[in-house]
Design a protein around this nucleic acid. Sequence first.
DNA 1: TAATATTGTTATGCATAATAACATAAATCA
DNA 2: TGATTTATGTTATTATGCATAACAATATTA
Lengths: 148, 148
Amino acid sequence: MTKINDETLRTFVGYHLKRSFNVIQSDLIETLRPFDLRMLTYSALVLIVDNPGLNQSRLSQIMDIERPNLVVIIDELEERELITRERVPTDRRSYALHPTEAGHALYRETLDAVTQHEAKLLSGIAPEQLEQMIATLKLIESAKKGQA
Amino acid sequence: MTKINDETLRTFVGYHLKRSFNVIQSDLIETLRPFDLRMLTYSALVLIVDNPGLNQSRLSQIMDIERPNLVVIIDELEERELITRERVPTDRRSYALHPTEAGHALYRETLDAVTQHEAKLLSGIAPEQLEQMIATLKLIESAKKGQA
DNA sequence: TAATATTGTTATGCATAATAACATAAATCA
DNA sequence: TGATTTATGTTATTATGCATAACAATATTA
């Protein structure tokens, strides 16, 4: 059981980001499993509840995924009757996405679960420390190519 | 161009982690492309150079991936003659992984490139701020289920 | 009106990641 | 010792995430 040296990779911020995100992600996946939601379907549901009426194009932009990939996500949410696709009269190309009552209900349930998942996982870390980290993460996020 | 509200998701640390990692990841992918390396093949190469003689089992553990997924990565590095697989006399089940001279050379080249990629991307952020963030990320990483 | 752009969609491919099942070899134990 | 269990590497398979090309329908613009 010799120790492995990953000091070289540890010099990279991205390596730390990936490893810590993996920890949160795997716990989140387990948290969402009972609701039969994946991370992307969950994110989409939350954004549709919080922004009723938005279309798929805008949603794919905020979710940072390509439009084709969003189609299957929306298909799944619609099949499960968590959201509806409604033709927009003023622009008949696009669909307005709205949550159903079931969608709202699932939103509330999962919000509780996910909030508790993070609270439990991050319980050993001071809130101010997390806030500081989030501030730094926002800086990185805004360093997107083309913006920098 | 109405603004989308993602305040609910912004309450989650994991959301910030994912978004900022995506920024670094997409730039890293472009950085590695000229060397015909993906993130995983790159990580494996670095770890083999820094830990010559380790076997696939240990490598998959440190890389946090399943052994079957490592096989194809090692296959690729071996085919490109960046590493070698050598039978271990004392344990004939396992292979000792060693970098070739070409592996060493590519390691040095890519280390420079990746270092510059991060330096450029994170140039607007104070080093102390990044160090603080890394400290917090390490705390999250150690919050792994079973350890907590 | 003609050319261009946008929205949603299908098809496709690559990369990442997980599991089951297996052969070989080592370790354990009884 | 021999029988059982464990570890290592492998193949096959599947699910998921993410990107691009090509397209029909509709809007926009020049």
